[in-house]
C-alpha cells in the first residue's frame, strides 16, 4: 500500500516536472540553446497564479489558461531580449543571457512579493479520497494531485497533437530539425522560434501553478527546477520529447520512491537511501549516462554530443 502511495506521489510530481522539462526541450530544439531561466519562469508562473487568484476568486483550473496566455507573452519578451539579439552567437551567449533573466525574475519577485512562502489556489479543490485506511497507512489521493496528473497529461497530449496534426506544429518541428532548411523552404523561422519560446514558457508557467499549491513557492525556487529540467532532458536524450517526460518521471522516482526503499524493503538501508544520498546516486547515474550513453536512455543518436 505504501508502495502504491509513493508511486502515486511520484507520478504527480513527475507530471509537473515533465511540463518544466518539456518547455526546456522545446526551446532547446528550436534554438540549440539552453534556457537557464526555465526554473525561474516556473517560479514566476507560481507568482503569476497568485496575482490572478487575487484578481479573480475562481478555481485554479479556470486561471490556468489565463496564466498560460500571460506566460506565453512573457516568453515572447524573453525571446526578444535574451535570444534574438544573440542568435548568431555561440550557444553560451544565450546560456548567460538567460542566467541574467533568471536573476532579474528572482529579484523582481522578491521585491514585488517579499521572501515569504506563497501558495497558489487549488486547481479544483482541496478534497482528498482515502482508501483502505486500516491497511498500512492507507492510500490518500488528493484532488490536487489527480488534477495535476490530468492537466499535465492533457497538456502533453495537446502538445503531441499540435506537433503531429497541425500545419503550425509541423513548421515548428521543421524549424527545430534544421533551421537553414526550414528557412529555405519558406518557413518564417524567427516567428517559429518566438512561438516556441511562447509555448515553452507557457508550459513552465503551468508547472509553476501546479507545483505552488502543494509545495509553495518562494523567489529562490528557480535554480532547483532548472537543474531538474536540465537533468531530465539529459537522461531522456537531448532533444527527445518522450525522453524528457521519461527523464522527469525518473527524477521524481528518485526523489520519492528511491529514498523510501528502506521502508519498503527492510533489508535495504545505509546512507545511499537518505535524501541527500539519493541526490548523489542520481548525480552519479547522470554522469555515467553522459559518459557511457551519450544519446540518453531513451534518445536516438541523431545528435552526437562528443
Amino acid at each position: 500500500m505504501l508502495a502504491l502511495q509513493l508511486l502515486f506521489n511520484a507520478l504527480a510530481l513527475g507530471a509537473a516536472y515533465a511540463l518544466v522539462a518539456l518547455g526546456f526541450v522545446l526551446i532547446l530544439n528550436a534554438t540549440g540553446a539552453v534556457n537557464f531561466a526555465q526554473g525561474d519562469l516556473v517560479m514566476a508562473g507560481g507568482y503569476g497564479g497568485l496575482v490572478l487568484a487575487r484578481m479573480l476568486p475562481v478555481p485554479g483550473v479556470v486561471l490556468l489558461p489565463l496564466l498560460m496566455a500571460g506566460m506565453a507573452a512573457l516568453g515572447l519578451m524573453v525571446a526578444l531580449v535574451a535570444y534574438f539579439p544573440l542568435r548568431r552567437r555561440p550557444p553560451e551567449a544565450v546560456f548567460i543571457s538567460t542566467i541574467a533573466i533568471g536573476i532579474i525574475l528572482q529579484n523582481g519577485t522578491n521585491i514585488l512579493f517579499g521572501p515569504e512562502l506563497a501558495r497558489t489556489p487549488a486547481l479544483l479543490g482541496d478534497g482528498e479520497f482515502r482508501w483502505l485506511d486500516g491497511v498500512g497507512g492507507g492510500l490518500v489521493v488528493s484532488a490536487q494531485s489527480v488534477a495535476i496528473i490530468v492537466v499535465a497529461a492533457l497538456l502533453i497530449a495537446g502538445l503531441h497533437l499540435l506537433f503531429s496534426r497541425t500545419q503550425f506544429g509541423r513548421r515548428l518541428r521543421a524549424t527545430a530539425q534544421d533551421r537553414e532548411v526550414a528557412s529555405a523552404i519558406g518557413i518564417p523561422v524567427d516567428a517559429m522560434v518566438a512561438a516556441t519560446f511562447a509555448v515553452g514558457v507557457a508550459l513552465a508557467g503551468a508547472a509553476g501553478l501546479l507545483l505552488a499549491r502543494g509545495f509553495f513557492v518562494t523567489p529562490n525556487d528557480g535554480g532547483n527546477y532548472m537543474l531538474k529540467a536540465y537533468i531530465a532532458v539529459t537522461i531522456g536524450g537531448w532533444g527527445s520529447i518522450p525522453g524528457a517526460v521519461a527523464g522527469a518521471a525518473l527524477i521524481a522516482l528518485f526523489e520519492v520512491v528511491f529514498p523510501a526503499l528502506p521502508a519498503l524493503v527492510p533489508a535495504l538501508g545505509g546512507p545511499a537511501f537518505s535524501q541527500n544520498g539519493a541526490t548523489i546516486v542520481l548525480d552519479a547515474l547522470i554522469l555515467v549516462i553522459l559518459v557511457a550513453r551519450p544519446q540518453g536512455l531513451f534518445g536516438e543518436a541523431s545528435k552526437a554530443r562528443a
Binding site: 555561440p90 550557444p91 548525480d283
Partner: peptide, 19 residues
C-alpha cells in the same frame, strides 16, 4: 570522463560534479 563532452553536456557534467 567529461572533458571531451560538448558544450551543454560539459556544462551540465561540471555543474553536477559541483553539486
Amino acid at each position: 570522463p567529461v572533458l571531451h563532452l560538448r558544450t551543454h553536456y560539459f556544462a551540465l557534467a561540471t555543474l553536477i560534479i559541483s553539486q
